[in-house]
Write a protein that binds this DNA or RNA. Structure first.
Lengths: 211, 211, 211, 211
DNA sequence: AATGAATGAGGATTCATTCAT
DNA sequence: AATGAATGAATCCTCATTCAT
């Protein structure tokens, strides 16, 4: 049924500006909804209600639902990456510790976006989703960047090992996020354990005795 | 209304038996579909086509979609738990190693069911899903059982620490499953790293220096 | 879904007796349900749940839904008519008064059945309902009987006038039932007014000045 | 997404206007169908076919079936009330007679809408219907208005008596409508009797001898 | 005398999307 | 830069009914 005109029609401003604003509102609403109910659950109607804009307006800003969610993924990922401070430190141990910590922080700060990402990763449908493809690509790129940061100097770890380590560090973080979603609430302790584990693995890998 | 005479009295139990069979077919079809496309993607129409039974027949066996998926979760979980062989071993280290290994095996063998579980865990909708609730409860119970197995003798680990360790072991496994879904394909290596990490954490926790 | 076997399977008794019993239970359940929600709302599933018998058992006792509701109408009408004591009295006035009173009583005592009747009367579907036809026929017959009772002696009223009077008496009662359903709760007062009105009309009609 | 240039600026307000039109068409179709087959019988599919608009369009204009039928009730009631000309007259008798007549006329002219109303009034389901609630409320308001018209000058009747009288007048009309639906076809004569009866009751009530 | 199981048709409602303005 | 209105396909689920046992 017609959405019965919620807010007051705001004084006609710069149309361009309004445009950006609306787009932003839609993106935020979509991020919220998709973070809560996944790709399928993020219906256009729900995004419309949440953003206050009619469904047809969403289609003015985005080609279709897939494009909208891809845009959400892109924007959110950017924000998230920004939050993951670079792993700085003189020794490898320091760098690994810094990496662990920043991952933990980033996970604790953007649970909504990450939940969406994980849901997208789990999807297995035949019609490939652009949003999913993009998430996986960005995740991959982030992983590469972390590897680079870990290695840039004379490290005793091989590239392959560094990649393994970073992959494990990330996967562990995601697993903890999942455990949190499943109700295991001592997330902080889990992250602490994870840090210990990753440090140990770094040690092992560096000393060459790797797996 | 009443027929004039009695019918032929032959071969009893046909419909009864067929009922069980159909129920099973539906359950299997639903498990397959839901493992692939999640709760929302597991439409009744899809399950109907996959199982060969009309949609209305599905409703004879299950109250609604939620009850169907809850039944899937229950049956699959049972199967899965059966696959996780008990963690036997004399020393704590042996038991931890056995635990790691069986978790790894179980994860590699039932990826479909676990994917469904992870998707359910990530859902965050207002209308609570019975299927989700059940999955979380069963996961919790399994965790408890693992803790019990780890502790039953004179262990130097506190109950709390054992729970932490098991939770981390499980979360890590789930994270690796996720990483696999995200395209990191060296799953075996990740599980190897995970085993090393869990063993190390067990050591740390046992020596009392627990965080 | 399968109704999960509610009551204990009662000790196998005379099958014939059980048959009548079941039929009765179904009839009562159907009367209740149909009195509450009308013909369309009286679904076989609802009657099944209310009676405790499976839907297929209902079809063993009744050819189809229409036949079931027709049986309900027949049985209920009989009961109802039994409650309307004959209009006895020496003078016409006394008889009219007796008629009014017994109608009022009967209406107050069988509201469920009467509601069903009124709903059936209001139906206007192309596929004629047997239940509806039967109700209308029985109502007509009851009306005739009342007319007969009013007239059997040397009355000054013409047959046509008596029929008019009885029709009005009945319609008024039905209207009051409706008003009650609509929330006008002083039903007793309305029946009192109605009695006064009918008596007056009897007077008018008898004195020949009838319209 | 944004087209490169502006479109031609001609003839505004077409879709807007069509919207009202469609809504009206749906409302009319629904009134027709519901008047014929009641609430349950008024399926969305039927209304869709009758109105010429697809089912999904009906849901653009109305939240759900209940809201649609409530809108039907509201619109029809308004029309109906408009038809019941005010009860004017110098003496009470004249006013009562005018009331009777206008009620009779209104009943004869809007049988479809009234049948729907009566069916709604008779419903007794657990999930309360908004359409039913609205009908009852409007009927109540109309009753109040009639009472007001009957009383506004120095009348010898108490408010309570006036209310009784009006309630009886209305209930009688409804009963006659029902009798008509049940096949008693001398509706005009019944209304004549009813007028006589109501007039007499007014007399009785005014002379203070009220029951 | 019953009943588990099945089924096609139809129930209300929501979906993503389009189009004229 | 938007948005009211529309729409066909799909959603979940219920319907009356049948049939083998």
């Amino acid at each position: 049924m017609p959405p019965s005109a919620a807010a007051t029609p705001p004084a006609r401003r710069r149309t361009r500006a309004r445009g950006r604003e609306s787009r932003q509102k839609i993106l935020e609403a979509a991020a919220r909804v998709a973070g809560e109910r996944g790709y399928d659950g993020a219906t256009i109607a729900r995004v419309s209600k949440e953003s206050g804009l009619p469904a047809s307006s969403i289609y003015w800003h985005f080609a279709d639902k897939d494009a909208l969610l891809a845009a959400v993924v892109e924007a959110s990922f950017e924000l998230w990456l920004g939050r993951v401070s670079l792993a700085i430190g003189a020794t490898a141990a320091e760098k690994v510790r810094a990496l662990s910590e920043s991952v933990a922080r980033a996970f604790r700060e953007s649970p909504d976006f990450l939940r969406l990402g994980l849901m997208l990763a789990l999807e297995r449908r035949s019609d490939e989703l652009e949003a999913r493809r993009l998430y996986l690509r960005l995740r991959h790129e982030a992983l590469d960047r972390f590897v680079g940061e870990l290695l840039d100097e004379r490290s005793m770890m091989s590239v392959a090992d560094a990649r393994r380590l970073v992959t494990y560090a990330l996967a562990g973080g995601e697993g903890i996020l999942l455990a949190a979603a499943a109700g295991d609430d001592d997330v902080d302790e889990l992250f602490a354990l994870h840090a210990t584990a990753v440090l140990h693995l770094a040690d092992v890998l560096e000393s060459g005795a790797a797996r």
